[in-house]
């Protein structure tokens, strides 16, 4: 599904990613962990094509195509979804209008006719229930005045609407209480199919209690310094990152 090879990327001339290699196959759940400033958010931003980041080296193949050649919205249409760490507020644009535009742009890309209003409303209703999002949210402006938990549930709701093949959840657990965390995680799990993949970016084990990863990577200083099974997350929870970093730095000498 996704193949990242020797990816280097920088922002304002400062290199953040220094050679990432990663392969995600259909149906897999990958967790990317790492201390603050290790490049986790940069990686997700680069994958979805944030204009502030420049890819300086390496390649990313997604569904056999060169991902880096695609515009931001094309990546989205191809099924790449990012649940933002800090979803932006868009005053004056209603959720309904926003979602309808997003869905129909995707359908246009797939050469499908636009969804009729009644089908669209049905779809909304079905997906809303998944993350227990109240119907009143649909009339409000995108993320405006939403609490932290509501913003994250809204992200998962949009994920449900757009049915991506590869979802990146960037620190989706930050700012969530335990109930909201469960709702969000359950939503993600329900959306999971053998054909779709998920990359979970997180600091802590706790989200991984709900969304079980197949593979865990540790990102540090713009590189993946360790890849292992789900037991790695538990070990990190217990021992922190320092031992791994030391191991890595020793190996670099």
């Amino acid at each position: 599904m996704l193949k990242i090879e020797n990816l280097h990327a920088s922002i304002n001339g400062k290199e953040i990613l220094k050679g990432i290699n990663l392969q995600v196959n259909p149906g897999e759940v990958h967790a990317i962990m790492g201390p603050n400033g290790s490049g986790k958010s940069t990686m997700s931003n680069v994958l979805v094509g944030h204009p502030s980041y420049q890819v300086t080296e390496g390649s990313v193949t997604y569904k056999g195509k060169n991902l880096l050649d695609m515009a931001v919205e094309q990546r989205s249409h191809e099924g790449l979804f990012l649940s933002f760490q800090y979803p932006v507020e868009i005053p004056g644009v209603s959720m309904t209008n926003f979602m309808r535009t997003a869905i129909n742009e995707k359908r246009k890309y797939l050469e499908l006719p636009p969804l009729s209003p009644s089908d669209f409303l049905k779809l909304i209703k079905a997906k809303r229930d998944l993350v227990k999002l109240d119907s009143k949210f649909m009339n409000r402006s995108v993320n405006e005045g939403f609490s932290g938990g509501e913003k994250k549930r809204n992200e998962i709701f949009q994920m449900a609407m757009l049915e991506p093949s590869l979802s990146i959840l960037d620190e989706t657990d930050s700012g969530l209480d335990i109930d909201a965390l469960r709702i969000v995680a359950e939503g993600v799990n329900k959306l999971k199919t053998p054909e779709t993949s998920v990359i979970v970016i997180t600091h802590y084990q706790r989200l991984l209690d709900y969304i079980k990863p197949d593979i865990v990577h540790v990102l540090y200083s713009g590189r993946i310094i360790k890849t292992a099974g789900p037991e790695l997350a538990l070990e990190l929870e217990e021992r922190g990152y320092d031992w791994l970093i030391k191991e890595f730095e020793d190996s670099q000498k």
Binding site: V48, G49, H50, P51, A71, V72, E73, R75, S76, H77, F81, L82, F84, P87, V88, I90, P91, G92, V93, N97, F98, T101, A102, E105, K106, Y109, S141, V142, Q158, L162
Partner: peptide, 21 residues
Amino acid sequence: FYMQQRGISESEARTLLMLAF
């Protein structure tokens, strides 16, 4: 950018934001 990530083209996103404005 947020809107583009959701698949809305840049020009459409601009129009939506201007309308909202």
